[in-house]
């Protein structure tokens, strides 16, 4: 396993720089790092609040997968849309959501993005183009294709990103969605975050092909594999897929190989993988550490700058939890509100 951060670090200038250093200005790159920290600390904060009994239900943490969420969303606008998964906190933050309203949702409060009706598994911020996490594996795939159909019909020029996990590639919805997106040449990018396990079942045991991206050939679209823990590699592949989509050339299947540090959900006893395996990913391939050292290498940020980001994120998380705690609970009398659209 190579230390991926060193990959593009041979030269500091010119055409040999990794993609993101050519594509984005330094503020944007520092903001990308900040978002990665925001995702990690948000999830750590959510986990702690759960342990302390402030949040009920369950949650699926994406700690370790931050480079994929941030790399994919780096070049998107608020008008570009995403569909997300049960492991969707990172996508929501990467797309621009406010962590205060996310915490408020997890706390079940009226100030939450879903007014306390959705929780972690349905977190969404439609105003930044996030059509929602989904409790059904593969549930978002056809919906993303439908959103892309709207983009094509209305000629908006927007791109739709469909996040899903390795588990979803064995759902029928995956195959139906990819096929339709391909025959109609829709502006959608299918992003598989392959973290190696669908709950406890490894990809090797569940999927007949070695890579999820291998399935792209069945639907006549490019299948691209990237190291999902390297922001620049993810963003570069995403850029090509987005260009292709915007040019009317149709969908791409992009596979980000990554790893989740935590269990599947809060009920996971981690019996299906070894401590050594988890340790290796955490110490050798952590996406935030890798991105940090690369940013420092290219002179985008120094140690002080990193400290400032960590500190400001820490404050934002604290304030977010405080906001959630203080926000009002929904009234039971409003239980049935939002089942149907209120009509005059």
């Amino acid at each position: 396993m190579s230390a991926t951060a060193k990959k593009g670090a041979a030269k500091k200038d010119g055409a040999n720089q990794p993609f993101i250093y050519r594509q984005f200005d330094q503020d944007k790159l520092r903001d990308a790092l900040r978002k990665m920290y925001l995702i990690r600390q948000f999830e750590e904060g959510a986990e702690e609040s759960y342990m302390r009994g402030l949040i009920h239900g369950t949650m699926h943490l994406s700690i370790g997968q931050e480079a994929s969420a941030v790399g994919i969303c780096l070049g998107l606008s608020d008008e570009d849309q995403i569909t997300s998964t049960h492991r969707g906190h990172g996508h929501c933050i990467a797309k621009g959501a406010d962590v205060s309203r996310m915490f408020a949702e997890f706390f079940g409060k009226t100030t939450g993005y879903c007014r306390g009706r959705g929780g972690s598994m349905h977190i969404a911020d439609v105003s930044t183009g996030n059509l929602g996490a989904n409790g059904i594996v593969g549930g978002g795939l056809p919906i993303a294709v439908g959103a892309a159909l709207t983009a094509k019909k209305m000629k908006t020029g927007n791109v739709v990103v469909c996040f899903f996990g390795d588990g979803a590639n064995n759902e029928g919805a995956f195959h139906e969605a990819l096929n339709m997106a391909a025959i109609w040449k829709l502006p959608v990018v299918f992003v598989c975050e392959n973290n190696g396990y669908g709950m406890s079942t490894s990809v090797a045991r569940a999927t007949a092909v070695p890579n999820i991206a291998d399935r792209a050939s069945a639907y006549a679209m490019p299948g691209v594999i990237v190291d999902g823990n390297v922001v620049s590699d993810v963003a570069e592949a995403m850029h090509e897929a987005t260009e292709r989509a915007r040019n009317g050339e149709g969908p791409t299947l992009l596979e980000c190989k990554t790893y989740r540090y935590r269990g599947h959900s809060k009920s996971d006893r981690n019996r299906y993988r070894t401590k050594e395996e988890i340790e290796e990913w955490m110490t050798e391939r952590d996406p935030i550490e890798a991105f940090e050292s690369q940013l420092m290498e290219f002179g985008v940020i120094d140690q002080n700058g990193i400290e400032e980001i960590r500190e400001s994120v820490r404050k934002e998380i604290e304030a977010g939890i405080e906001f959630a705690k203080e926000s009002p609970m929904p009234e039971v009398a409003n239980l049935e509100k939002y089942v149907y659209t209120e009509q005059a």
């Binding site: 059509l131 795939l141 056809p142 919906i143 993303a144 439908g146 959103a147």
Partner: peptide, 12 residues
């Protein structure tokens, strides 16, 4: 898939 595409188009 078709029903889901219709749902996605409706939402957007």
């Amino acid at each position: 898939g078709g029903a889901g595409v219709a749902v996605g188009a409706a939402v957007t």
